[in-house]
Design a binder for these strands. Sequence first.
DNA 1: GTCTATACTGCGATAGAC
DNA 2: GTCTATCGCAGTATAGAC
Lengths: 192, 192
Amino acid sequence: MRKINPADKRQRVLRSARNLFVKNGFHNVSIPAIVRASGVSTGAIYSYFPTKEALARHIHEQAMGEFHRNFMLRLAGRTNSEEKLRAFAETVFETTESDPDLMEYLLFMRHGEFMQDTAPICFSEPFRRVQEIVKDGIANGEIAAADFFIAGIAYTGAILRAAELRLQCVLKTPLNEIADRLIAHAWASIRG
Amino acid sequence: MRKINPADKRQRVLRSARNLFVKNGFHNVSIPAIVRASGVSTGAIYSYFPTKEALARHIHEQAMGEFHRNFMLRLAGRTNSEEKLRAFAETVFETTESDPDLMEYLLFMRHGEFMQDTAPICFSEPFRRVQEIVKDGIANGEIAAADFFIAGIAYTGAILRAAELRLQCVLKTPLNEIADRLIAHAWASIRG
DNA sequence: GTCTATACTGCGATAGAC
DNA sequence: GTCTATCGCAGTATAGAC
């Protein structure tokens, strides 16, 4: 195997493993497969992570954190509900196009296969934040809905399904080209 | 193991295996586990299905067919776009409550892990049918959208996300109790 | 710290009794 | 047709050289 900067090796393992996990599923990815994909040896991998499960958990935290940070960056400065929800949609669409492996992980990875007691991904910080935005929007009349949770489902459902179909190559058009129309439909489902 | 009607054994294997597959993932379910869950021996299982993969494929066809038939039954007699799309939503909600294991399979199973060249589930007959309904609805002015595919995404996204969250026990309310509100949001996203 | 070689476990699938 | 016992293989993780 060619010489690799040692500082990069851990990252190479994380990157390769994430792509394999999301493509083949946790239990269908062997350590030898990660060795082949990353160019890092078994011994080195086990020097970074005690078990395959711990490696998967690390990947999970990293992926969740990255999406959350991107969302917070986009959210800054948005004043009304429509704009804040648009920030969520833009984060999803932008991530889908610029780092499809990350978005694929977030949407399709079955993390229950290696973490038993984890809350569903929709309890994570970004989704709780979206629920709050919808709640506030209903309170000040920007959004028309009897139940903020149900309204949140309608909006996020329309946005996330677009990302899913794009990642499965069913949607041929890049999401940024049709973002306006997708967001318009999602917003129409709950606007006042 | 207790005496079981031989005619039922095949069905017991199919049922137990489907639940295990959807809960743990194909590669994390061993034949011994299916033996334990179904009460049918290894030898009998291999007399019904040549391999574990063939068993999984059979389960897949059966699940897809069942949902499709239920959808077609509900669709009969509906005249306009709104009612036809409502039939789709009702089929999803009803299946989620009455046979959650089936709906969980349809929404979350990664069938690519045991079938390589299969089209995504959204190319399946029910989803093609929904796209046609939306297309016709746009043509006769019942639906306002520039693109039938994008509009279909908005509607089905809102509906399917509700089913997902219900199956993950995030939504505590049975879907039939909030079906009207969910359908109203989905329809609002595309109505003329 | 990092490598290769290997120990041990549990899998899918089969064989042979009934 | 159905059962139990077992084969061969691939997996995770480790050990010991460098």
